Amino acid sequence: MMDELTLVQRIVVWILPVIFAITVHEVAHGWMAKQFGDKTAYQQGRLTLNPMRHIDPVGTLILPAILLLTFTGFIFGWAKPVPVDARNFKQPRKAMMLVALAGPVSNLLMAAAWALLARIGVMLQVEFVSMPLIYSGVAGISINLALALINLLPIPPLDGSRVVSGLLPDYWAWRYNRLERFGFIILLVLLATNGLGLILAYPMYYAHQLFFDLAGL
């Protein structure tokens, strides 16, 4: 569907969904941390939807742009991580698991919101109004599902690894968390070798089907 658009149109369609997906993901982490007693992100002004407070030049701008311009059909990115101080939690392991899950859950909720926007476009049947809503909805669904599923992978420091770490005994959690220094390299290798696409192919397919059905597409 996106193949029908020119490069400029693709950029216009994708820019807002990408920025919102990445920004809200980080705000969700900080908001959940605040619920458990850690106000670090709040005190540093990171609980805001102002994207300028969250932009990471590489993860928010350069990488998504490269993926978009090279027509990979797979776009993701990241923002500056919100600061979380687990020492402020009464139950650090449980709290960190829920703080980690807040990001992917926020992306799934946003995917649903974009699907409903696309559905409005489908129902209106007025081309100059419908098509922007549908294209934006498809982009919003795609980027949010990509962020949710990638972040649920058990590769430190992704959110899924925080859940796994919280379930492991202390010693094994410590050993497992030491992989964090290699996490970015692992992701780059998976991306370069299409390993990431192979791992996520079936989850992405069925998730897209579910949300596209919601959108009436």
Score class of each variant (00 low, 15 high):
Glu4Gln: 15
Glu4Ala: 15
Glu4Tyr: 10
Leu5Tyr: 07
Thr6Phe: 04
Thr6Val: 06
Leu7Gly: 10
Val8Ala: 11
Arg10Thr: 13
Ile11Gln: 02
Leu16Ala: 13
Val18Cys: 14
Phe20Asn: 01
Ala21Gln: 08
Ile22Glu: 00
Thr23Val: 04
His25Leu: 11
Val27Asp: 06
Gly30Leu: 03
Gly30Glu: 00
Met32Ala: 13
Phe36Pro: 02
Gly37Ile: 04
Asp38Leu: 12
Lys39Val: 02
Lys39Gly: 05
Tyr42Cys: 06
Gln44Trp: 10
Leu47Pro: 08
Thr48Tyr: 02
Leu49Asp: 12
Leu49Gln: 07
Asn50Lys: 07
Pro51Gln: 11
His54Ser: 05
Ile55Pro: 02
Ile55Phe: 05
Pro57Ile: 04
Pro57Gly: 10
Gly59Thr: 03
Thr60Arg: 06
Leu63Thr: 02
Pro64Gln: 07
Ala65Ile: 04
Ala65Lys: 02
Ile66Leu: 11
Leu67Met: 13
Leu67Ala: 01
Thr72Pro: 05
Thr72Trp: 01
Thr72Glu: 02
Phe74Cys: 04
Ile75Gln: 00
Ala79Tyr: 00
Ala79Gly: 12
Ala86Asn: 07
Asn88Val: 04
Phe89Asn: 05
Lys90Phe: 10
Pro92Thr: 03
Lys94Gln: 13
Met96Val: 04
Val99Arg: 03
Val99His: 00
Ala100Gly: 07
Ala102Ser: 09
Ala102Arg: 08
Gly103Glu: 01
Gly103Ala: 01
Ser106Trp: 00
Asn107Ile: 07
Ala112Trp: 03
Ala112Thr: 09
Ala113Gln: 03
Ala118Thr: 09
Ile120Asn: 03
Ile120Asp: 10
Ile120Tyr: 11
Gly121Gln: 02
Met123His: 14
Ser130Ile: 11
Met131Lys: 12
Pro132Ile: 06
Pro132Gln: 13
Ile134Glu: 10
Tyr135Thr: 04
Ser136Thr: 15
Ile143Leu: 05
Ala146Gln: 06
Ala148Pro: 11
Leu149Asp: 05
Ile150Ser: 05
Ile150Trp: 05
Asn151Arg: 09
Asn151Phe: 02
Ile155Arg: 01
Pro156Tyr: 04
Pro157Cys: 00
Pro157Phe: 03
Leu158Ala: 12
Gly160Pro: 06
Ser161Pro: 08
Ser161Tyr: 04
Ser161Leu: 09
Val163Phe: 03
Val163Glu: 02
Val163Cys: 09
Val163Trp: 06
Gly166Val: 05
Leu167Gln: 05
Pro169Met: 08
Pro169Glu: 03
Tyr171Ser: 15
Trp172Val: 15
Trp174Leu: 13
Arg175Phe: 13
Arg175Leu: 15
Glu180Ile: 03
Phe182Met: 11
Gly183Trp: 01
Gly183Ala: 06
Phe184His: 04
Phe184Leu: 11
Ile185Pro: 12
Leu191Thr: 13
Ala192Leu: 15
Thr193Ala: 10
Asn194Trp: 10
Leu196Gln: 08
Gly197Val: 08
Leu198Trp: 14
Ala201Cys: 10
Tyr202Gln: 11
Tyr202Pro: 01
Tyr202Leu: 14
Pro203Met: 06
Pro203Glu: 11
Pro203Gly: 12
Pro203Lys: 08
Tyr206Trp: 13
His208Lys: 14
Gln209Lys: 14
Leu210Val: 15
Leu210Glu: 07
Leu210Ser: 06
Phe212Lys: 08
Phe212Trp: 12
Leu214Glu: 09
Ala215Pro: 03
Ala215Gln: 00
